[in-house]
């Protein structure tokens, strides 16, 4: 299969089950909402070592937020509800609550809930006040700039992590130019995030390592500098491989994001240094969600 002269490997991306929550961060203006959101999603690229994968989903108009102020929705993915229970209060407490004028709300309805204000209220040292508005409990925590409002809990739902595709390019500069366009297009898909910096993975990994203490290590078969050293997947024309990893709330949204992203990358074509599209998989041993490139691009 070829799109605009770019070869699409007959391969599949292997994704795995995760748990996800969505939170809404509001502030006096979008600038401060972004500061809080960027702090929260910092060091949240991969569950390999960050505990969670998180990113900004979209901007929200004042009419779309609980307090009528500008805001952002963020999605946070983890391998288990227990991990979210640990990470969400810590991240909201240390990044959103510490950002001036912010408030934090749940953006997902679900029977399964993890704590936010339920844990953070203790920062109020006994001066916190609970309010139930429209059936939902919120905590008012007195802080030095005024008051931090945080919803008691946020909903959790099953999700999918690790949808991906690889961009095999002549150079890193050309690959990244195409990836930037793809990430911009993927951002318009509801229910997905690309948690790595700029949405692009510069150091895609394989499962396991020669070192027993390491759960993931460099994917040498796709490292251009190791051609001639290892059994490579790269032809002589490939000088750089980038990866876009997509987490989503369901298979359909991940597949849609992959399709849109691949088509954007392919629009650059070989004349702009984009030669092949492949996908990361581990022979079907990592997870039950298999996204065959040829199928999703039909």
């Amino acid at each position: 299969m070829k799109i605009n002269g770019v070869q699409i490997d007959n391969n599949f991306a292997e994704a795995f089950p995760m748990k996800a929550t969505r939170i809404i961060v509001t502030a006096m203006n979008l600038k401060w909402a972004y500061r809080a959101a960027n702090a929260l999603r910092g060091f949240a690229t991969s569950v390999i070592a960050c505990g969670v994968e998180a990113d900004i989903e979209k901007e929200l108009k004042p009419s779309e937020t609980p307090d009528g102020r500008p805001g952002l929705s963020l999605m946070i993915f983890a391998m288990s509800t227990k991990q979210l229970e640990k990470q969400v209060p810590i991240r909201v407490g240390q990044t959103v609550m510490t950002t001036a004028t912010t408030a934090c709300y749940s953006g997902m309805e679900s029977d399964t809930q993890v704590s936010m204000g339920k844990s953070l209220r203790y920062f109020g040292d006994g001066y916190q006040i609970s309010k139930i508005i429209n059936g939902k409990r919120f905590w008012r925590i007195p802080i030095m700039h005024g008051e931090f409002i945080c919803e008691e809990t946020t909903g959790v739902q099953p999700a999918i992590g690790g949808g991906n595709f690889l961009i095999l390019a002549k150079s890193a500069r050309q690959g990244l130019t195409a990836c930037e366009k793809a990430v911009d297009a993927i951002k318009k898909v509801e229910g997905v995030i690309t948690a790595f910096p700029g949405g692009v993975v510069g150091s895609g990994s394989k499962v396991g390592s020669k070192y027993p203490f390491l759960s993931a290590s460099t994917n040498e078969a796709f490292c251009p500098t190791l051609k001639g050293v290892v059994k490579t997947e790269l032809g002589p024309e490939i000088g750089s491989v980038l990866e876009i990893v997509i987490d989503g709330l369901d298979e359909a949204s991940v597949a849609k994001a992959m399709r849109i992203g691949i088509r954007e990358v392919c629009s650059y074509g070989p004349k702009n240094g984009i030669y092949r599209i492949s996908a990361g998989n581990y022979g079907g041993n990592l997870g039950p969600h298999l996204f065959y490139l040829h199928e999703i691009l039909k």
Partner: peptide, 13 residues
Amino acid sequence: NYSPVFIKQYLHY
């Protein structure tokens, strides 16, 4: 004298 966010929530409600 401040602008309480929780009052905004109530008034929107």
